[in-house]
Design a binder for these strands. Structure first.
Lengths: 219, 219
DNA sequence: CCGCGGTTCAAACACTTGTTTGACATATGC
DNA sequence: GCATATGTCAAACAAGTGTTTGAACCGCGG
């Protein structure tokens, strides 16, 4: 018993395993079936916990959902594309149109790779569902994730395509980001139609589809 | 009373107004909030009918949803892009690569225009939600709507881009259709970012975005 | 040993869900 | 008139929902 059981540190808050398990199960189930189609009993059963654990650790089902949103956003900001955005080397490369274009393609590739990691599948699906479905905490996601990405991408696009007008550059950047998100959502159909067994083997093709090396015309 | 009330024909099935009202409300609410988030009481209240009317006219909530799917699919096949597909003139135009390319752009334009009609907004949203979310009757929609469109578009794409391989042509056609559907779903974000008050005024721009006149490279 | 704060649990609660019931109204055919 | 079919309605039903309760458990410090 003493070798396997979890022993929380003496006085510190115990980093309850229960909380993490609930979060993981909730992100997976909310992402797979949506908020309304997921019951709290589904979640606690999946996590091997009791129903009232949700009230104890989060407060309510809605609060649990909020916690999921924050967890996904935080992880993405710290480990995903967020870290990349704060990398000075990427910014240095983007001082010429060609460099900015390369950076855009690299960012798209990194985002795709991150979203396709098997151990990120659940959060990735949760994130996409919320963005597309504009779920209950779309504001939270925008503030914590999309906002930062959009600002970064706007600068890149402005430089790469010589747009000038900040509003149009922002719209163009938003269109690109949206395209990546939507593409990821329909990835299973795409892979099916393309005969790809693993879409992760064709990231280069997908990057080309989203942002070709030689962009057509202006707009 | 005799001037306003609805008088069903003597012996024929009365084309119950109730049934149509329920269908319209259901398509609107299912499309707006999804199956699980929509209660039968929401629907009957919106339609100004009684709860048990659903059982009487359709059988169950699921059956009502099926009826919605069929109604949307039928309408689209008869009045929407379906009619266009059976138009011989379009097929005649598509016998050269350039003609096929023009036809593709025209088809996209027609689909966009049809989906943006205010009086089609509810069915349009219902359809998109089901396709993206791959809801409970995705098979029905595929059989009645997507299948026909996909076959038609595959022929066009094969001719326009000289693909040759039927599988790759089919995948390419699927990607184009998917792009239109997804674009329509995120239209509100796009319009917001673009500063468009009415996206219907910029259909030409959207067609260009989906299928530019001068396609970049291969694949 | 005792009490305490943190944590878990089975059971129950109050409410909403989809569904069903049985009565009622109206119109049609004999 | 009478029986039947069609359609509508308020009320109730059983199951499922999120939430709450109160007791129990655990490791710790007194």
């Amino acid at each position: 018993m003493s070798t396997l059981a979890f022993h929380p540190p003496a006085n510190a808050p115990p980093v309850s395993d229960t909380r993490q398990r609930l979060l993981a199960s909730a992100i997976r189930l909310f992402g797979a079936h949506g908020f309304d189609a997921t019951t709290v009993r589904d979640i606690v059963e999946d996590a091997g916990q009791n129903v009232s654990a949700i009230k104890y650790h989060f407060g309510s089902k809605e609060d649990l959902f909020d916690a999921c949103t924050r967890a996904v956003a935080d992880r993405l900001r710290q480990e995903g594309a967020g870290a990349l955005i704060r990398d000075g080397a990427w910014r240095a490369q983007a001082t010429t149109p060609d460099g900015a274009r390369d950076t855009i393609r690299a960012v798209i590739r990194v985002v795709l790779q991150d979203a396709m990691r098997p151990d990120r599948a659940d959060e990735s699906r949760f994130l996409r569902r919320e963005i597309i479905h504009t779920g209950r905490r779309a504001d939270l996601l925008f503030d914590h994730v999309l906002g930062e990405h959009l600002a970064f991408m706007t600068g890149l696009v402005d430089m790469a395509e010589g747009i000038g007008d900040p509003t149009r550059a922002r719209a163009r950047a938003l269109a690109i980001i949206l395209q990546v998100v939507l593409l990821l959502s329909s990835m299973h159909i795409l892979a099916l139609g393309m005969g790809w067994s693993a879409a992760s083997d064709h990231i280069a093709d997908i990057v080309d589809a989203v942002y070709p090396i030689h962009q057509p015309g202006g707009t």
